[in-house]
Computed example of a mutant assay.
Amino acid sequence: MPQPRDQKERPPCIPQSVSEAKPKQAGDKEKRNTEKDLENENGGAANDEWKEDVMPEILDGHNVYDFVDPDIVHRLEELKREAEEGDDEFEMDDMELTPEEQKTLV
């Protein structure tokens, strides 16, 4: 207990913001606003067709859908074809090497 130092009365001082705040109960969870909530607060989707869109997943601050390539299978097949065709161009026979180069390879 503090010791009185003068005759002034000093009642407890509770700030108004604290006294008006609702005390947290056990089991109360703080609701976090999602991007969808923020969008709805600002008038909803800009285009009516977008209202039923599922919100994209975010990973490390990037929209995952930005990395989806619908033509990935087609591009992969093209790369495989190029690799198969290109193998013949880069093959070298021992006959094309000079004697010094052949010694270095052995």
Rank of each mutant, 00 (worst) to 15 (best):
V18S: 08
P56E: 05
L76Y: 10
A83Y: 04
E39M: 12
S17F: 12
S17W: 13
K22W: 10
K51I: 01
E77I: 11
E100Q: 11
K29C: 05
V64K: 15
K80E: 08
N47A: 07
N33R: 13
S17G: 07
A83V: 09
G44Q: 04
P12K: 15
R10I: 14
M95C: 01
N33I: 05
P12N: 15
R10K: 11
D88A: 09
D87E: 14
L59C: 10
T98G: 04
I72S: 10
C13E: 12
L105G: 02
E89K: 12
K80F: 03
E91V: 03
T98N: 04
V64R: 15
D60Y: 13
E52G: 12
V18M: 15
E89P: 00
V106Y: 07
I58Y: 09
E77A: 09
D60G: 13
D60R: 12
S19W: 12
E30Y: 10
R10V: 14
K22T: 14
R81C: 01
N47T: 08
K29V: 14
G43T: 08
E82Q: 13
G86Y: 01
E41Q: 14
D71P: 00
A26T: 05
M92Q: 09
E41F: 08
L97A: 01
M55G: 00
Q102D: 05
E39I: 13
G27F: 04
H74M: 07
K103V: 03
R32I: 11
Q102H: 07
K36R: 15
E49H: 09
E78T: 04
K8F: 14
N40S: 03
P23Q: 06
V64P: 01
N40I: 04
D71G: 04
K51Y: 00
D93E: 05
